[in-house]
Amino acid sequence: MITISARAHGNLRRHFPGGRDEADFTLPDGSRVVDLLKAIGMPDVEVWMVSVNDLLAKPEQILFDGDRVNIFAPVAGG
């Protein structure tokens, strides 16, 4: 099993436990970014992009124990 530290940006935090913006998730070895999103229950259409250890990641990228994942919603600013 691997443990991933994830941060949800914008209003995506509503999909995290307790509505917090940071949480750790435990997944089976070999899990990918898309598996993490499924485990969280975060709809793909709400996600603009994901970074792993500060580098943009594709949905199929494999995650490793201790990875830091940021999940971003589309942003407009203002």
Partner: peptide, 10 residues
Amino acid sequence: TGTVVALDAG
């Protein structure tokens, strides 16, 4: 203000 890191990542 959370937009800073999001746009930076993109």
